[in-house]
Design a binder for these strands. Structure first.
Lengths: 115, 115
DNA sequence: GGGTTAAATAACCAAATAGTTTAGTACTGC
DNA sequence: GCAGTACTAAACTATTTGGTTATTTAACCC
């Protein structure tokens, strides 16, 4: 039950094989056979991964003779980035520690040290 | 078979319930019961979601009398952001179209129009 | 100690996922 | 048309996931 777009994108990304495929495609368009080459799995398995990436909008496939060149479609990654933006303010640890320190100071804690 | 950290984080995020939990925790620490309240599912189901988030390092749980207050731990989100950074250059669509336009110009295409 | 509240665990189930092998489709080139 | 190449689809299997209800643990209060 994950009908929403962002969940589809994130679960497509939540697999090391699929992320490796995207990394390869960042270097340029290529065929399925070449994409499959580094992996210890069958072609149909790779084909399935590509279908997952395609449904998430992360790749597009063309037609060129008997090859199906894949290329990266990074638009959905921006959606992930936009979602992450809501949390940027939380993940700077040094900022967190500074905050703790300032709160400690306000409470008059003499031993409060920022590290 | 997803032993790597980033996959664990991304699959934890690839569920709308869990993202809603994180959104709630962004407003501040709270109890499991309160976290569960907006969802049409049992407490144990929420408890399982929390375990997934905890294993991914996205939340931490304390102890306060009979309550187990949860708080956001956004560190792992930075790892996602760092991974995304490798793709930032791809996802600006207008930049893509500009690139296409410039390539069309180079090939001497007279109908090449940037939109 | 006994009752109540908060939460986790256990045991179970259905559906989705990630892989396999086998078979089929689509195009090339002789 | 036929053999070969590149890929997809189908059918099957094992594991994981996301949910359920019933039970247990842990702390509070009287």
């Amino acid at each position: 039950m994950t009908p929403d777009r962002l969940s589809g994108i994130l679960s497509a990304l939540a697999d090391p094989t699929r992320r490796a495929i995207l990394a390869r495609l960042a270097e340029g368009e290529t065929s399925v056979t070449e994409l499959a080459e580094p992996f210890a799995m069958s072609m149909p398995a790779v084909s399935k991964h590509l279908k997952v990436l395609e449904r998430a909008g992360l790749i597009a496939r063309g037609r060129e003779a008997q090859w199906r060149p894949c290329r990266l479609e990074a638009g959905p990654l921006r959606e992930v980035s936009d979602w992450l933006d809501h949390y940027r303010r939380f993940w700077d640890e040094s900022l967190d520690r500074l905050e703790d320190y300032l709160q400690a100071l306000q409470k008059g804690d003499p031993g409060g040290t920022p590290s």
